[in-house]
C-alpha cells in the first residue's frame, strides 16, 4: 500500500486545526511532561550517590550507606533461574501452539490447543501479587524451598511464561509459513527442521520474546516479596534468600527512614539497566534486519 499520508495532510492541516486537535496535542505534551518529570526526578536524585563504590560494595546500616553488590548478584541469580525455566517450557509450548508439528488431528486436540491459549491469556493478566501468594504456598512451603532465590526465580518464571510463549509462537509461526512446506518436501525430520531451519529463522522473534520476559522479570517486585525474601547479604547458593533490585528500592523507600537517596540510586541503576537492554536489542534487531535483507553473497 503506497503511503499518501504526507501529500494529503500538508494542505488540510495548514488550513485550520480544530480545537479538539489542539486539546489532543496538549494531552500529548502533558504526557511527555509527566513522564519527563518522573524520569528526570529519578535521574537527578539518583545520580548523587551513584558511583563505582555504590555498585561494587555491600549495603551497610540497613542500606542507608554502602552499595548494592549482593543485591545485583541476587537479581542476576533470580533472573538466571527464571529464564532457565522459561526457555525450555516456553519454546516447547510455542512449537506446539504455532503448528510446526501439524494441526491437531481431532476435535479434542483442537480443544486442548484452544484451552492452552486461553489459559495463557488469563495467566498473563493474573496480578503479580497472586503469583507471590502461589509461589509462597507452592514453591516455598509445599516443595520446601523456603524463602530462596530458586523459589523467587520459579515464581517469576510462571509470571513471564505467557509473554515469552506469545512472542515465540508468533515468531515460529511466521518462520513456518515460509519454510515449513519446503523443508517437509525435502524430507527433513521435524527435529532437524526445527534445529536447522525454523529456530534460526525465528531467532530475532525468539530473542525479542526472551528480552520481553527478562525485562518483565527484572521489573517485578510484588511476586518476590514473600518468595525470595528480603535478606540483603551476599547469597551463597540458590537456596539462600536474596533481595533483588526492585525489592531493595521498595524496602529502602518504605521501611528504612533516611533510605531515600539510596532507593533513588538503586532505582536509577534499575532503569539504566532496562534502558541499556532495550537499546542493545534495538541495535541487534537492526543488525539482523540488515543481515536478512543484505546483499546476496
Amino acid at each position: 500500500m503506497p503511503d499518501f499520508s504526507t501529500g494529503f495532510t500538508g494542505n488540510a492541516a495548514a488550513r485550520a486545526r480544530p480545537y479538539g486537535q489542539w486539546l489532543a496535542a496538549a494531552t500529548l505534551v502533558l504526557l511527555a511532561a509527566l513522564f519527563g518529570w518522573l524520569l528526570i526526578d529519578v535521574i537527578i536524585r539518583g545520580f548523587g550517590s551513584l558511583s563505582w563504590e555504590f555498585i561494587s560494595s555491600a549495603p551497610t546500616d540497613a542500606g542507608r550507606s554502602g552499595g548494592i553488590w549482593p543485591v545485583i548478584v541476587a537479581s542476576l541469580a533470580t533472573l538466571a533461574v527464571c529464564m532457565a525455566a522459561v526457555l525450555p517450557i516456553g519454546l516447547g509450548s510455542a512449537a506446539l501452539l504455532s503448528g510446526v508439528f501439524g494441526a491437531p488431528r481431532s476435535s479434542l486436540g483442537q480443544r486442548a490447543v484452544n484451552g492452552c491459549r486461553q489459559s495463557l491469556d488469563i495467566l498473563a493478566g493474573v496480578p503479580s501479587i497472586v503469583f507471590g501468594l502461589f509461589g509462597n504456598a507452592f514453591f516455598c512451603l509445599y516443595l520446601g524451598m523456603g524463602f530462596s532465590i530458586l523459589a523467587g526465580g520459579l515464581t517469576l518464571a510462571c509470571m513471564v511464561l505467557p509473554y515469552f510463549i506469545r512472542t515465540a509462537e508468533h515468531a515460529l509461526r511466521s518462520a513456518a509459513t515460509t519454510h515449513l512446506a519446503g523443508s517437509l518436501a525435502l524430507g527433513l525430520r521435524h527435529s532437524t527442521m526445527l534445529r536447522r531451519i525454523l529456530l534460526p529463522a525465528a531467532l530475532p522473534g525468539l530473542f525479542a520474546g526472551f528480552v520481553l520476559a527478562l525485562t518483565r522479570a527484572l521489573a517485578e517486585t510484588a511476586a518476590l516479596l514473600f518468595t525470595s525474601g528480603y535478606v540483603s547479604r551476599m547469597p551463597e547458593s540458590l537456596l539462600d534468600s536474596g533481595r533483588v533490585l526492585s525489592v531493595h528500592v521498595y524496602d529502602l523507600a518504605m521501611n528504612v527512614t533516611g533510605g531515600e537517596a539510596q532507593a533513588y540510586s538503586t532505582a536509577l541503576v534499575l532503569i539504566i539497566t532496562l534502558a541499556v537492554i532495550n537499546v542493545l536489542v534495538a541495535l541487534l534487531g537492526h543488525y539482523w534486519q540488515q543481515k536478512l535483507n543484505g546483499a546476496p553473497q
Binding site: 519454546l91 492452552c116 503469583f131 502461589f134 511464561l161
Partner: peptide, 17 residues
C-alpha cells in the same frame, strides 16, 4: 508435555490459592 505444563499452570495456581 511442555504445552500441557504451561496450560496446567493456571489450574495449579487457582487450585493452590
Amino acid at each position: 508435555l511442555c504445552a500441557l505444563l504451561a496450560a496446567a499452570l493456571l489450574l495449579l495456581i487457582v487450585a493452590f490459592v
